[in-house]
């Protein structure tokens, strides 16, 4: 707790933090270029047994996901400076299920049990005596009498600053110790996911393969609820491109065609329907999420897609 009593107090720590961040990102990029072995991104899994959710707080990881893998996710936090707007949001980044499966399956990331990982890490650090308060906050006190020379006063802050998440720079030493031990397998994740939704296993597989199929074509993909579809496709980063397609999985109803076509055209897009060429694949109707199911995710069945546009509007 800092109380500002008389005169303004600048906290330089925050500026420092920013500097550290930018340098670390640069160095990180170099690392990616230099070495062939890229550390996997950690996907912190929250609420592992209820409704599993992957929330990423590490800005570096978010940047890497976006730049390198084209994975967007959705920012769901509030910007502290502009708490009233909800157009541009801040960390954490929420990944949706297809993105998570794709990242894990492609070997770019690993799921970790965030709650236990953090608890144990804290314990370990404590026992090793590494968890100590070494944050020093430098405050400038403006003296109304002497304008030129500002008095510097250093004192120990009475709060603990821990790095946001496990950025690679901070965590390198204990990451190798812990993170792998808390890895959650894709199987466990999907098991609890399927339990918490109305989707069946076959649907999850088929939809994921739709996602993968589109990802392979190089699209950037966002969830499409706001356009009444399952996904929205962007030809590149959404910050630079408008989307031009809404994707809907397995559309059968005539009304859906009408609604989809009308809606898409009114927002200057088209609607893409995507489905399996061969429907007979649906043999694995077992209730259990087993290894076979996980392996079947990696298969690449033939997909077929159609786009619909409403020609009525001038």
């Amino acid at each position: 707790m800092i109380e500002a009593t008389g005169g303004s107090i600048d906290i330089e720590e925050s500026f420092k933090a920013v500097e550290i961040d930018s340098t670390s990102i640069q160095s990180n990029q170099q690392v990616i270029l230099d070495t062939t072995e890229i550390p996997k991104i950690l996907l912190p899994l929250i609420s592992r047994n209820g409704q599993p959710e992957v929330l990423i707080f590490n800005v570096e990881d978010i940047k890497r996901l976006r730049d390198k893998y084209g994975i967007l996710g959705i920012l769901i936090g509030t910007l502290a400076q502009y708490p009233q707007q909800n157009f541009f949001l801040s960390v954490p980044l929420k990944l949706f299920i297809w993105e998570v499966i794709w990242l894990v399956e492609s070997g770019y990331a690993q799921l970790i049990d965030q709650v236990n990982y953090r608890l144990d890490k804290a314990k370990e650090l404590q026992s090793k005596g590494k968890l100590q308060n070494n944050n020093v906050i430098v405050m400038t006190k403006k003296d109304p009498n002497s304008k030129s020379a500002s008095q510097l006063e250093s004192r120990e802050a009475n709060f603990i600053v821990t790095p946001n998440t496990d950025s690679h720079k901070y965590s390198k030493d204990y990451r190798t110790i812990c993170a792998d031990d808390y890895e959650v397998s894709l199987k466990d994740y999907l098991k609890s996911y399927i339990e918490s939704t109305s989707l069946s296993q076959n649907q999850v597989r088929s939809y994921y393969q739709n996602f993968k199929y589109l990802k392979k074509q190089g699209f950037f993909i966002n969830p499409g609820l706001k356009f009444g579809g399952d996904l929205v496709l962007y030809p590149g980063d959404p910050l630079r491109f408008h989307s031009y397609s809404i994707v809907k999985f397995n559309m059968v109803d005539l009304q859906d065609f009408v609604v989809g076509g009308r809606l898409a055209t009114s927002v200057k897009k088209n609607i893409v329907i995507i489905g399996d060429v061969d429907e007979s694949e649906e043999d694995g109707s077992t209730e259990e999420v087993n290894d076979e199911f996980i392996q079947s995710l990696a298969k690449e069945p033939k997909k077929m897609s159609f786009s619909i546009e409403w020609s009525g509007f001038g």
């Binding site: 609820l225 009444g228 399952d230 809907k248 009308r262 809606l263």
Partner: peptide
């Protein structure tokens, strides 16, 4: 489902 409702409501809204 919600996707259908959202789409219909949006079309009807426009």
């Amino acid at each position: 489902d919600w996707f259908e409702m959202a789409a219909k409501a949006r079309v009807i809204g426009t």
